[in-house]
Computed example of a mutant assay.
Amino acid sequence: MRKFGLALAIALLSSSAALAEVSVQSCNRTVEFSSVPQRAVSNDSNLTEMMLALGLQDKMVGYTGVSGWKTLDAELTDQVAALPELSPKYPSKEVLIGADADFFFAGWNYGMRVGGEVTPQTLEPFGIKVYELTESCIHVGAKPKVSMDDMYNDLLNLGHIFGVEARAEKLVQRYRDELAQFKAGLKVSGTPPRIFVYDSGEDSPFTAGRYAMPTALIEAAGGSNVMDTFEKNWARVNWEAVVEANPEIIVIVNYGEVTAQQKREFMLNNPAFADMDAVKNDRFVTLEYAEATPGPRNIKAIKKLAAAFWEN
């Protein structure tokens, strides 16, 4: 009887130790999980789509930060229909606590702000663990230049956190294979076309720099982001720098109250941009918000960009 009790105790301790070993790197932090989150909240459309792509809706109590600016992919809308949107924009700490959340998938400027009310540190006392979007880590420390691995890394880490590693690995491998096959058949010639990403803003444009996902998408499609040396992910620049870079193609990010067509017309009708190659030749391509930010629509976005860059 004593041997059975000892064996049971060892088994329980081994099980607890195994659970405690589930840890992931989240920006400059290591986050440990002793159990699978059961009441998760995701912020933003692209992060929510990552959760849904992994079939994690049964581990969620809601999402935030979508209807205030954007929309979910129509293919995923049905999957999220049973979940409430807890906040149309960034959630407050009270919103997350009120939902009895135990996990928050967000990023810097994707639901959290450095020094703001909602951060991993402010949520920790309430038992809410945070995993940060890899692309956004540049806000809290150094990171390599953006690549498709940023998005793959998030899916794989979510797989570890929620105990669906095989599902995550299969999904990421599917994305890798699809992209490799597409690039193998992509016909490019000459120097990569110069691309500028126009997110928003008229006085000064909000754009994608070296650490923002569009840079990786543009490069995968055979182009070059004219703001590749801009040591930011998403931030403002001045129009003078854009005119000087003379992009050949402008990628418009479509979301919010100002439509993609309105952004295009603003550039076409502004005399300051008249000599810009992209404007002279009316070469614009539109990406939806969730295509331009890390998430399941990135491969589709690369194909869309390549179609605009090259005659394939």
Rank of each mutant, 00 (worst) to 15 (best):
A274G: 01
A278L: 03
Y289G: 09
C137S: 08
F273M: 08
K143M: 15
A241Q: 14
S92R: 07
K143H: 15
E265S: 06
I161S: 08
Q181C: 02
G55P: 10
E94C: 07
N153A: 08
L268C: 00
G107S: 12
D154Q: 10
A106P: 04
Y152F: 15
E231M: 06
C137N: 10
V66M: 09
G111F: 00
A272N: 15
M213R: 02
F230C: 07
E135Q: 13
F284D: 02
Y198F: 13
S224I: 13
Q173I: 01
A101I: 06
P125T: 08
N246P: 01
D277I: 04
G65N: 14
A40H: 10
I252R: 00
M267F: 07
M148T: 06
A308F: 10
A278I: 02
Y198T: 02
R167A: 08
A53I: 00
F266V: 00
P294D: 03
N233M: 08
I138M: 06
Y152C: 04
A290N: 15
E291G: 11
E32G: 14
T134Y: 09
P193D: 03
S224Q: 15
A235T: 02
G5I: 09
Q261V: 00
N254S: 15
Y131H: 15
A99S: 13
A106I: 01
Y110H: 13
M51Q: 06
V242S: 05
E117A: 07
A274H: 08
Q173T: 08
E311S: 15
R297E: 11
N312Y: 05
Y211N: 03
R236G: 06
I299W: 04
K300R: 13
G185P: 09
N28R: 11
P192A: 09
V61R: 04
E75M: 06
A212R: 03
I161H: 07
A81R: 11
T77D: 07
D44I: 00
V146F: 04
Y211C: 01
P91Q: 10
G62S: 12
A292C: 08
T48R: 05
L305V: 06
G256E: 11
K303E: 13
E75I: 00
L56E: 13
V24F: 01
V41N: 05
I252V: 14
L72T: 07
R113N: 14
L156K: 12
L52M: 06
N46Q: 13
A7R: 10
